[in-house]
Design a protein around this nucleic acid. Sequence first.
DNA 1: TTCCAGGGTAACG
DNA 2: CGTTACCATGGA
Length: 307
Amino acid sequence: MKRAWSIKEVEDGLQLQGPPDFSYSQNVNYLSRSALECLYEIEGERVIRAIRLANKPVLIEISGKERLLNVKLLTSVAAGRSDVLAEIAAYVGEWFDLERDMRPFYELAARDPVLQGAAKAYAGLRVMGIPELFEALAWGIIGQQINLPFAYRLKRRLVERYGDAAVHGGRTYYMFPAAEKVADLTVGAMDGLQLTVKKREYLIDTAQLIAGGKLTKSALLEAGSMRQAERMLTEIRGIGPWTANYVLMRCLRFADAFPIDDVGLQLAVKSVLGLDRKPFKSELVDLSAHWRGWEAYAVFYLWRLLY
DNA sequence: TTCCAGGGTAACG
DNA sequence: CGTTACCATGGA
């Protein structure tokens, strides 16, 4: 199968050429949106993070310009360097959404009064992904019904207590905790994180499903349809429509995933349309009829107006 | 104190 | 199936 982007091995890592309608700086600007993020470090337009390969952290540093991404390998790899680089390329490709052809979205957005402003302002932005399923689900669960700065604080506490890390240049780079690690925790052990008891239960239950192989990305992708995958997720206690669609959007990359009940979406639409109240769900249903097939990108671009 | 934040469950028609 | 209480936690 032909990719819309290309991979080249170079001396210190990889050089990726992104697809059309991809802007490195737009996506890095998105990554910079919160100073509270704890899973990567941004310096100027360079991004450094640890990713999990064979359950061990490998450090990469990404830089780039326009459609180009340079991925520098900071961890020394003795054997199987090409295999490691291939896995890194796959991760970065998923993270930066390099596979998607976004032209249909931009055509649709240019004609849409709600989307056209954001689509123009952030042209080249992708739905930045969360490739690891447990990280995506956990981040969704953590973020339920709390404001974003607090959600970041909760994530940081969890990550610093249970996440594996790599040290480089005197700094510590954490990975999100492995599902296997959280699967073995108890509600009591998770005291002091400021997570509600319910959320702790949801996190542990979800971790156990993933660690036990009962919930996987491939099972969700092969569910047959987005609706089927959504059903698989919402059958899990603690994962409702919002969390399911959030994960389908950012991890499984369904372009038609749609967390319609999202407060951020409501606030963005309120702002764009100059309403004096949040839109009713029925209004969002009507507005989003124009977004069909691209709801996830519509939401992501609207969120970008806020954060 | 009240209201809100990138919701979810359970009970009830 | 759609509605409606009720829940949980910190911040403004």
